[in-house]
Design a protein around this nucleic acid. Structure first.
Length: 717
DNA sequence: ACGAAATCTTTTTTT
DNA sequence: AAGATTTCGT
């Protein structure tokens, strides 16, 4: 049953039991099918107990789908198979091992925003306060963690004073997380990695836990994930990794394609199976995509083939600007729709979330229903983050970041001063927040109003905590928070903003309810973990008959009848920012476009705008990648409105120097007093004829040179 | 202490 | 250009 319709290579990958297995699966070669069938085979033949199978996917959504598919093949056992992302599996282990590992059971999981606000407070009054942004610090720290570098090592290997300071910040950040009983995303992996590597009973238990481990999208794993896999796949277990080096698009996040190359070393005796037959795309699409990716040097190299009939040519189209591009695409979607291709089978893919807007309004105009995946993430909305912060405080009273966030939200008369006073007192006392609130009267320096607010808050918190600790369903706790925190009262349903927030809150309550019915008895802690690990692509609904709009990254693993890739422009795909941009980055950008192209089954369009305004730069013009796409298989030859510019690596670079006369959109004309290179940008001190000279950074606002120092006027762009 | 206005900051992609 | 944050006036 589960083997029906598989080709010989796929069948071999499904039934092979001789040890570790590496499946090099090209795009559209049916790897998901192989994975599900392999699990079904293990179950049906009773080769291993269901609970001793672990399947690691890239998103939770993929895990859910796999569970469903396996469930169809072997309904009895699918529920017992453990499936999830590396992050969710690590969160599960952390929860189970809290007491032996010495971390709080109800830890908080900090997302990028939480990390940044924590870093912002730690950066205050350090020597690098003005030189390093929270975001930059977060990137450094994340890189270190992904490469398994601890704060000590980071400081030792620092190559500059500034880097040394950031390494110290890293150390402070780690202890702050600890104080708050929190892990960030990277910690979920690194802490588990450290834990299961130990030779203790507790640690080694996990290396014996799973008899069969399957990992999807192995090309997008990092060093820590590789280490975790090595520990989990100890003696007695077989590891099956599936991946495609041509589809590695997360290098910027620490992913190493080399993990695939090194797999046979990590897991001796590995059998390698290649899947090169493509079942998805027409030959025209396949030829175009293969031609593009063949320009990459660092790759295994493979020859995808298909037996599908030729199909429509790949179309490339130049438009004047992004608005025209969106209008043209939506018109085409509408035409296709009247020819029987429903919008639900069509996707528009782009490089950056910011591009989605034009398409949304064009869809509205054309009357095409659409769904935007990712841009405004539900769990990043203000009001949702507020509820979540309250819930975190209930589950984890040590979480000061969350407590600080909601202490005076909605406004209840506790100003910044009282807030600081309270938090300092709380840390000094070591008491539980709700207890300390009830004793607020004893804190010197607080106003009457603050004290009574805090006291009221204390009794609300105590009640809600008791509810949560008693194992109440998540939805009940959510309702208690909504009522008790005053959040609901603070929103005005008659305003547009208020009613949309209330809708979001309602949606949140529904998701809590859904969680409760799916996981009875789990309560608040489980719900919090689940929503912390939710991802953007988890929102994609393939059943809805709506046009899908999403980034190229988000499209990984999906397929559509018709795919439009928009903004195939120099500077956008490949995305080039001033600063370092090496050959490896270029190759990753090429792979990203390749991933997008190979999502298409029947029809593929590449479009670009000749002009596009991006903050600070006028971009646009066809991408160099378009010329690398083979158009000899009957594809429409692109007819660019303008000549294809010479491929240039790097952003059109303006050189500023003292004495330039420049134009700024807000301040008008001015003279450059000082020009300093900072990163890839310029820090300019400019005299606009005001009292004080202004210092600002290029790259955010278009600054054009009107006259070179003492020279001739330069054309303003 | 609060809300409005000025000012500052910003890595595109996401687990 | 947009959003978050800080400062300012009440």
């Amino acid at each position: 049953m589960y083997r029906a319709g598989l080709n010989p290579e796929q069948a071999e990958a499904v039934v092979y039991l001789g040890g570790h297995l590496l499946v090099l699966a090209g795009a559209g070669s049916g790897k998901t099918r192989v994975l599900t069938c392999r699990i079904a085979h293990l179950l049906a033949e009773r080769i291993v107990e269901p609970r001793r199978i672990l399947a690691v996917t890239f998103t939770n959504k993929a895990a859910g789908e796999m569970k469903e598919r396996v469930g169809r093949l072997s309904p009895a056992d699918a529920e017992r198979v453990r499936m999830g992302t590396f992050h969710s599996i690590c969160a599960w282990i952390l929860r189970r091992e809290a007491s032996s590992g010495g971390w709080p059971e109800n830890f908080s999981i900090y997302d990028a925003d939480d990390q940044k606000s924590l870093l912002r407070s730690l950066l205050r009054n350090t020597p690098i306060e003005t030189k390093v942004t929270p975001g930059a610090a977060q990137t450094w720290i994340s890189r270190w963690k992904n490469s398994m570098v601890d704060p000590g090592k980071a400081e030792d290997s620092a190559e500059s004073d500034q880097e040394r300071e950031i390494a110290r910040l890293y150390a402070a950040y780690q202890s702050a997380l600890r104080r708050n009983g929190a892990f960030d995303f990277d910690d979920l992996l690194t802490v588990v990695h450290g834990y299961i590597r130990q030779e203790t009973d507790a640690g080694s238990r996990y290396s014996r836990m799973f008899g069969h481990i399957l990992v999807d999208e192995y090309q997008d794993t990092n060093l820590v994930q590789r280490g975790i896999l090595k520990s989990l796949g100890g003696p007695g277990s077989s590891v099956c990794a599936v991946g495609d080096d041509d589809q590695s698009i997360y290098g910027w996040r620490g992913a190493r394609v080399s993990n695939i190359l090194d797999f046979p070393e990590d897991f001796p005796g590995t059998r390698i199976i290649r899947l090169e037959r493509n079942y998805r795309s027409t030959p025209a699409i396949l030829a175009a995509a293969s031609s593009l990716v063949s320009f990459n040097r660092g790759r295994h190299g493979k020859a995808l083939w298909t037996e599908r009939p030729a199909g429509e040519p790949v179309r490339a189209r130049s438009l004047a600007n992004p608005e025209d591009e969106a209008a043209w695409i939506l018109k085409e979607v509408s035409d296709l729709s009247s020819r029987g291709v429903s919008p639900g089978r069509v996707a528009v893919l782009y490089r950056t979330n910011a591009q989605s807007r034009v398409f949304e309004s064009a869809a509205l105009l054309e009357g095409i229903p659409c769904q935007v995946i990712g841009s405004l993430r539900f769990y990043e909305r203000e009001e949702i983050k507020d509820i979540v912060a309250w819930l975190r405080v209930l589950a984890n009273p040590g979480d000061r970041i969350s407590l600080a966030r909601v202490l005076n939200k909605p406004p209840r008369g506790i100003g910044d001063k009282s807030k600081a006073l309270f938090l300092a007192g709380l840390d000094a006392s070591g008491a539980d927040p709700s207890e300390f609130m009830k004793r607020a009267g004893r804190i010197p320096g607080l106003s009457r109003g603050s004290i009574s607010s805090l006291e009221a808050l204390g009794s609300f918190l105590a009640g809600a905590s008791a509810l949560a600790a008693g194992g109440a369903p998540a939805a009940e706790v959510v309702d208690a928070v909504l009522a008790g925190s005053g959040m609901l009262d603070a929103l005005d349903p008659s305003t547009v903003e208020g009613s949309s927030r209330l809708e979001n809150i309602d949606e949140f309550r529904r998701s809590a309810n859904e969680y409760d019915s799916l996981h009875p008895g789990s309560g608040l802690a489980g719900f919090l973990t689940t929503i912390s690990l939710m991802t953007t692509s988890d929102a994609y609904d393939s059943g809805a008959d709506r046009l899908s709009l999403m980034t190229l990254h988000c499209a990984k693993g999906l397929e559509f009848d018709t795919v439009f890739i928009a903004g195939v422009e120099e500077g956008l795909i490949p995305f080039i920012r001033a600063g370092r941009f090496g050959p490896d980055d270029l190759e990753e950008e090429r792979r990203l476009l390749y991933v997008g192209m190979t999502r298409a089954k029947d029809r593929l369009y590449l479009t670009w705008a000749e002009r596009r305004a991006r903050p600070g730069v006028t971009a646009g013009g066809v991408s160099r990648f378009v010329s690398e796409v083979s158009l000899d298989s009957g594809s429409t030859v692109p007819a660019p409105a303008a000549a294809v510019p010479d491929p240039v690596i790097g952003v059109p670079d303006t050189r500023f120097s003292r004495g330039n006369v420049i134009h700024h959109p807000r301040y008008g004309m001015g003279t450059v007093l000082k020009a300093v290179r900072r990163g890839g940008e310029w820090q300019l001190t400019i005299d606009f004829g005001m009292d004080e000279p202004k210092t600002l950074l290029t790259g955010y606002v278009p600054i054009t040179i009107v006259r070179e120092k003492g020279g001739f006027p330069v054309d303003a762009v």
